[in-house]
């Protein structure tokens, strides 16, 4: 999500071509997984809850979709506290 926001602000956002590209990025990654943004959000929350049941989470956990070619992966980065 952070990358996505960065992209928006570093490009000339006013051009309709860039708007089309940004809208397509979002729509295509959700289409390919058959996943709505709401489902993705509740998935994120669930993953964090499951981890928190077993480990102490340290800092801010990140759960996001990354795409490489036509493949999409769920990128989960959850820092945990050591003893």
């Amino acid at each position: 999500m952070l990358d996505f926001i960065k992209k928006i602000y570093t490009r000339d956002e006013s051009s309709s071509r860039n708007q089309a590209n940004n809208r397509l990025r979002v729509v295509l990654s959700h289409d390919r997984l058959n996943l709505t943004p709401e489902t993705l959000n509740s998935l994120k929350e669930d993953i964090i809850v499951v981890i928190a049941n077993h480990l102490d989470i340290d800092g801010s956990p990140e759960v996001r979709l990354i795409t490489e070619g036509r493949n999409t992966a769920l990128d989960i980065s959850i820092p945990v506290k050591g003893r």
Binding site: D12, S15, S16, R17, N18, A20, N21, L24, R25, L28, G69, R70
Partner: peptide, 15 residues
């Protein structure tokens, strides 16, 4: 003029 998706854009999306 930045008013249409380019070939590169389309290849990036469709791979």
């Amino acid at each position: 003029h930045g008013d249409m998706l380019s070939i590169e854009d389309l290849i990036e999306h469709l791979c």
